[in-house]
């Protein structure tokens, strides 16, 4: 297919778009269009599209501009909130990761050096300022002997409780957001 356009196409198109074809155009242009395939196609197609456009524009049922404005505001607001939330979520993930790393490091350190620091807990009941704690815990809880199974159990329970409480706090914080 050869791509040949007529130099008078722009003139013809402008007339058709302004609705001046064929009444308000020179007779020589009409004669030219009759003999020029490109221009006659242009007139046929442009006139058909202009009629279709006028008809469709008249048939359009428009919604409220205010509603669209409100929807756009809502979307932009949500996008802004999301932008703000993203670093907070990243910070939460970072904090959780740090906690896990610290917990793992402590666990490894404890495994290597034993639970020597727990001897401090054995002396806890002798501390005058914390005397009242002894009345709260069952007798013998802090008596970690060499063969006692209580020390790892206490550690596990304490870590589990911390994780549980931390998880619940994180959940409620996310819910509030």
């Amino acid at each position: 297919m050869t791509l040949r356009s007529c130099p008078r196409e722009a003139e013809v198109k402008a007339l058709v778009e302004r609705g001046q074809w064929p009444q308000a155009c020179a007779s020589d242009l009409r004669t030219h269009v009759d003999s020029c395939r490109s221009c006659s196609e242009l007139v046929l197609v442009t006139a058909a599209f202009q009629r279709a456009r006028n008809h469709a524009v008249g048939a359009a049922k428009l919604g409220s501009a205010g509603l669209l404005w409100w929807r756009a505001q809502l979307r932009r607001r949500n996008a802004a909130v999301e932008r703000i939330s993203r670093p907070i979520l990243s910070a939460q993930i970072f904090a959780l990761a740090v906690n896990l790393v610290v917990a793992a490091a402590v666990a490894v350190w404890q495994a290597r050096h034993g639970v020597a620091w727990l001897t401090w807990l054995e002396q806890l009941p002798h501390n005058v300022s914390l005397q009242f704690l002894t009345s709260l815990v069952p007798e013998g809880l802090f008596n970690f002997g060499a063969g006692s199974l209580m020390s790892p159990l206490v550690l596990i329970f304490a870590a589990s409780a911390l994780l549980l409480v931390g998880g619940v706090v994180a959940y409620f914080a996310s819910e509030k957001q």
């Binding site: 279709a52 469709a56 524009v57 359009a60």
Partner: peptide
Amino acid sequence: ARSLWAYLAR
């Protein structure tokens, strides 16, 4: 809006 709707509808 009308011309945009016409374009999309057609």
